[in-house]
Amino acid sequence: MANQVEPILTEELFQFLQKERFVTIATVDHETTGPNVSAISWVYAPKKETVRFAVDNRSRIIENIKANSQVVLNVIANESTYSISGSAVLKVEKMDEVPLKLALVEIHIKEVRDVMFYGSRISVEPAYEKTYDKDAADRLDLQVMTAMKKA
Results as ranks from 00 to 15, higher is better:
residue 2 A to V: 08
residue 47 K to W: 12
residue 4 Q to P: 04
residue 89 V to Q: 13
residue 27 T to I: 04
residue 35 P to G: 13
residue 9 L to Q: 03
residue 139 R to T: 03
residue 62 I to T: 09
residue 92 V to A: 08
residue 93 E to W: 04
residue 134 K to I: 11
residue 112 V to R: 05
residue 71 V to M: 09
residue 34 G to R: 12
residue 94 K to Y: 04
residue 91 K to P: 05
residue 41 S to R: 13
residue 107 I to K: 01
residue 87 S to N: 12
residue 8 I to K: 14
residue 48 K to D: 08
residue 99 P to N: 03
residue 100 L to E: 10
residue 81 T to F: 03
residue 121 R to A: 08
residue 20 E to P: 08
residue 44 Y to S: 02
residue 150 K to Y: 01
residue 116 M to R: 09
residue 13 L to T: 02
residue 11 E to H: 10
residue 141 D to N: 15
residue 28 V to K: 15
residue 61 I to Q: 13
residue 60 R to I: 11
residue 55 V to S: 09
residue 128 Y to N: 07
residue 40 I to C: 04
residue 45 A to Q: 06
residue 70 Q to E: 15
residue 45 A to V: 04
residue 108 H to F: 12
residue 132 Y to S: 14
residue 53 F to I: 05
residue 98 V to W: 00
residue 77 A to F: 03
residue 114 D to C: 09
residue 1 M to N: 12
residue 22 F to S: 08
residue 52 R to E: 06
residue 16 F to P: 01
residue 42 W to A: 12
residue 112 V to I: 01
residue 85 S to H: 02
residue 142 L to P: 01
residue 40 I to A: 01
residue 142 L to Q: 13
residue 60 R to L: 14
residue 75 V to K: 03
residue 71 V to Q: 03
residue 11 E to P: 07
residue 143 Q to P: 02
residue 129 E to M: 09
residue 148 M to K: 02
residue 88 A to C: 06
residue 32 T to F: 12
residue 15 Q to P: 07
residue 105 V to R: 05
residue 131 T to A: 13
residue 41 S to Q: 14
residue 78 N to Y: 03
residue 92 V to C: 06
residue 19 K to I: 07
residue 51 V to Y: 07
residue 110 K to E: 15
residue 33 T to M: 14
residue 109 I to F: 09
residue 110 K to S: 15
residue 138 D to K: 11
residue 95 M to C: 03
residue 142 L to C: 05
